[in-house]
Design a protein around this nucleic acid. Structure first.
Length: 598
RNA sequence: GGGCCUGUAGUUCAACCGGUUAGAGCACCGCCCUGUCACGGCGGAAGUUGCGGGUUCGAAUCCCGUCAGGCCCGCCA
């Protein structure tokens, strides 16, 4: 029977006889003495074997190799003074092995070394193919631990301190319009009909409020059949919450306490409360983004009013057509960013054009208030406007001012991306800084040009701001996102709980009464039976863990993630199935290998 | 659907502008070494340069196609 875990042994254990199980992390054979680093999930401890002190185990230590599984019985001993290892938590002790039992060997060449120098990075496809080995490695083992600790902290806080109850909701549910593409599951019992996997438990948690659950949470798996990114997987985990009879401020305060609790218990980090708040309008104005990274400055400056009458048509025309002209001032940018990079063919130009910009005008601020700029600005911007522009952007010698001009959304998207690229390149992002903030007062709807209709920015159950109900089309929503270092890690809203308001919203997004009844009739009906005011939030748990673990990819926060092609390299999912299985489900595949699908 | 990047020994990387037998660290095998902790020393085995085609006297290197992985755009209420 195991008496201890490897990584937990300390000087206070000296003298004890211990039984350890684990993997050989490394073996060092000095001819007359063999050292084995034995690893389990808690860490490593050094095993010593030599012919004099441990004659029985010495021959047993000889055939050991990396990643062999062994049982070791030995005595915890003080290391000689000159052999202490301050790099290891167990570095004060070592185990004299009285017996070493080989439980299992490695029978094939390891696809990669489990224990390697930090500088060596293994190809990710190999790591995913042999994920069970990858998870043995310190980095991934640590990430799994962080994930576990985060979820544990959430449960302790919500259940023990705040009276939340976890309720599971269906994985097999019904397809709903709006939102992402659904994963579908054919129903054998009901031929021709399909379940959908939930994109989130949204409707069920609202129903639970009608049920009087009052404070619900769930660590909920969600599914969206969309293309993958470094921070997006087709199945992911939300911390889903919903609560009744609370105002927005009360919900935000509770969530601030939750997030602070998570960081405090998992990483010992104190986060000042309350979190800063920005309205959506402010965030778009100052950063061009609804999830701004506020760890650094580089705020945008709107200069539409200064240039609206100038002779430079790109500027005046943009304003005349209802757009804007904004400046991204880059302190010290003159030395950092050459004209070549801003002009067609340059990398900064490319970033801007991918966001829809036609180009980037610029001003370079020189000594004594002199400027270098493109001819069109020099010739067309009156001196007093130039002075006002320099003073409004707080321009100093050496600064580079980049202009975005055009439709508001394109200008914001352009300068947002350039801002992030510049911050990264100029090392403006402080290491280890955590910047949490709320974005509030999102608009209810945005225009979908493809479908020529308004659609819900958040989702169609979001309550309109009480001051704005006169005109829903332009109304603000009582919706909020939590942003951490430029990543949206959570978002929620107060919900509509009156059927008539819900109906107005469906009308506004062009959902006919019939469609609404067909898709959401059960929810509207539930609202007829005494629905409490309620609201909630959902966090992207994988993303939160990724950020807390210091990783750049959500895959490193998930035990068994999928590749960008949505494949599992370990199980080879997805796969073909027997014709008989399809038949049983009353479905057939229209896919023909070698042919283009459309 | 589109753009960009990567693919060389089990693994991490080299191999210059196309030119002898494709090299090195780790891992593996053998020998040596009693205080290492990324131990060290000597030796060995290990390669269809992802795959297919083309250009060339000659291709890891250039070109085309294809497969796999990554980053991004579109998409993701």
């Amino acid at each position: 029977m195991r008496t201890h875990y490897c990584g937990t042994l300390r000087a206070s254990d000296i003298g004890s006889t211990v039984t350890l199980f684990g993997w050989v992390d490394r073996r060092r054979d000095h001819g007359g003495v063999i050292f084995v680093d034995l690893r389990d999930r808690t860490g490593v401890v050094q095993i010593v074997s030599d012919p004099e002190r441990t004659p029985e185990s010495y021959p047993q230590a000889d055939p050991l190799r990396n990643e062999y599984v062994v049982k070791i019985v030995g005595r915890v001993s003080q290391r000689p003074a000159e052999s202490l290892n301050p790099k290891l938590p167990t570095g004060e002790v070592e185990i004299y092995a009285d017996s070493i039992e080989l439980l299992n060997a490695v029978r094939k060449p390891l696809p990669f070394q489990v224990s390697t120098a930090d500088s060596e990075s293994v190809r990710e496809d190999l790591r995913l193919r042999y994920r069970y080995l990858d998870l043995r490695r310190e980095r991934m083992a640590q990430n799994l631990r962080v994930r576990h600790e985060v979820i544990k902290a959430i449960r302790r806080f919500l259940e023990d301190q705040e009276g939340f109850m976890e309720v599971e909701t269906p994985i097999l549910t019904r397809s709903t319009p709006e939102g992402a593409r659904d994963y579908l599951v054919p129903s054998r019992v009901n031929p021709g009909e399909f379940y959908a996997l939930p994109q989130s438990p949204q409707l069920f948690k609202q129903l639970l409020m009608v049920s009087g659950v009052d404070r619900y949470y769930q660590v909920a798996r969600c599914f969206r059949d969309e293309d993958l990114r470094a921070d997006r997987q087709p199945e992911f985990t939300q911390l889903d919450m919903e609560m009744s009879f609370m105002t927005q401020d009360e919900i935000l305060a509770l969530n601030e306490a939750l997030v602070a609790h998570i960081f405090k218990t998992v990483q010992g980090i104190e986060i000042p409360l309350p979190f800063p708040r920005l309205t959506y309008a402010e965030a778009m104005d100052r950063y061009g983004s609804d999830k701004p990274d506020t760890r650094y400055g580089l705020e945008l400056v709107d200069v539409s009013d200064l240039v609206k009458d100038c002779g430079f048509k790109v500027f005046s025309g943009a304003v005349a057509e209802g757009g804007i002209v904004k400046v991204l001032p880059i302190p010290g940018g003159n030395d950092q960013i050459s004209n070549v990079r801003i002009k067609p063919g340059g990398d900064i130009f490319k970033i801007a054009s991918e966001a829809g910009a036609k180009g980037l005008a610029y001003i370079r601020v020189r000594a004594e208030g002199a400027v270098d700029t493109i001819g069109a600005i020099k010739d067309n911007l009156p001196a007093e406007k130039m002075q006002e522009l320099l003073s409004r952007t707080n321009a100093q010698e050496g600064d580079l001012l980049l202009f975005g001009a055009g439709p508001t959304d394109i200008v914001n998207a352009t300068l947002d991306r350039v801002r992030q690229a510049v911050a990264k390149e100029m090392n403006l992002i402080p290491e280890g800084k955590l910047n949490l903030l709320w974005i509030t007062d999102f608009p209810m709807f945005e225009w979908n040009a493809d479908e020529q209709r308004l659609e819900a920015l958040h989702h169609p159950f979001t309550a309109p701001h009480p001051d704005d109900v006169a005109d829903l089309k332009t109304a603000r929503a009582v919706a909020y996102d939590l942003v951490l270092n430029g990543y949206e890690i959570g978002g929620g809203s107060l919900r509509i709980y009156q059927p008539d308001v819900q109906q107005w919203v469906f009308d506004t997004i062009g959902l006919t009464t019939e469609e609404a009844k067909d898709k959401f009739g059960f929810l509207l009906e539930a609202f007829e039976y005494g629905t409490p005011p309620h609201g909630g939030i959902a966090y992207g748990l994988d993303r939160l863990v990724m950020l807390m673990a210091g990783e750049d990819s959500i895959r490193d926060a998930i035990a068994f993630p999928k590749t960008q092609q949505a494949r599992c390299l370990l199980t080879q999912a997805p796969s073909g199935v027997d014709e008989a299985q399809l038949k049983e489900l009353s479905i057939a595949s229209t896919y023909e290998p070698g042919e283009e699908e459309d």
